[in-house]
Computed example of a mutant assay.
Amino acid sequence: MKDFYAVLGIASDAASEAVRAAYRKRALQFHPDRNTAPEATDQFRDIQEAYETLSDASRRHAYDENRRRNLLDKPLETAREIWKHYLEGVLP
């Protein structure tokens, strides 16, 4: 399960304005027309998917519930996945 909050670089309690601002910033950074890195296209798709989910209130609620359940059911696996995505976003 991808951590969409880590993909956008925001906290899980971020307001919709913060989600939109983070999306715009990250989309400009990884847009394939601006970024020629081989992984830019995949990262751009992840950013779009994260924004589509977190910008819609009902989809965000369902995502948050699924995320919470995964943390309770498989805490080590979920934590490993969250840290992996977090570190990919932080480290160059």
Rank of each mutant, 00 (worst) to 15 (best):
A15T: 11
V19K: 00
T36M: 12
R69G: 09
D56N: 03
E81C: 03
A79L: 08
A37Y: 15
K2Y: 14
S12Y: 09
T36N: 12
I10G: 02
I82L: 01
L28W: 08
A22P: 05
Y63E: 00
F30V: 04
S12K: 12
E49L: 10
A37H: 15
L76Y: 03
P38S: 15
A40H: 07
F30D: 00
D42I: 09
S55A: 12
S58H: 06
G9P: 01
R20W: 03
E77N: 06
A15H: 12
K2I: 14
N66M: 06
V19M: 05
I82D: 02
F44E: 06
T41G: 08
L72M: 11
R26W: 11
R20H: 08
L87T: 14
F44G: 05
P38Q: 15
R34V: 01
P92D: 12
L28T: 07
F30Q: 03
V7G: 00
P75E: 08
E88I: 13
A11R: 14
D3T: 02
Q43Y: 10
E49Y: 08
A11F: 12
H61N: 08
E17L: 09
Q29T: 09
T41L: 11
S58L: 07
L8K: 10
E81R: 04
D46A: 14
E17C: 09
Y5V: 00
E77Y: 02
A40P: 06
E39L: 13
R20G: 01
A6R: 00
Y51I: 09
P38T: 15
N66L: 07
L87A: 15
T78C: 00
R24M: 14
E39D: 15
A79M: 06
Y63W: 04
E77F: 05
L76H: 04
H85F: 11
R80L: 05
R69M: 14
R45E: 08
A15G: 11
L91Y: 13
A15N: 12
R67S: 02
L71M: 07
S58G: 02
R67G: 00
R69S: 13
R34F: 03
R80T: 05
G89C: 10
D46W: 07
R60L: 03
D13I: 07
L71I: 04
L54T: 00
R59W: 05
A37E: 15
K25Q: 15
R24Y: 13
L28R: 09
D33A: 13
E17N: 10
R60I: 02
K2Q: 15
D46M: 12
E49G: 07
E49R: 09
S55R: 12
A79S: 06
E39R: 11
P32K: 09
L8N: 09
A14H: 03
R67W: 03
F30R: 01
S12F: 10
D42V: 10
A50M: 07
F30I: 05
G9W: 04
E65A: 07
R26G: 09
P38M: 14
P38C: 14
Q43T: 12
I47H: 05
D64V: 01
N66S: 07
A50W: 00
K84R: 06
Q48V: 13
R80P: 01
F4R: 00
E17T: 10
A18L: 04
R68V: 04
I82Q: 00
A22R: 04
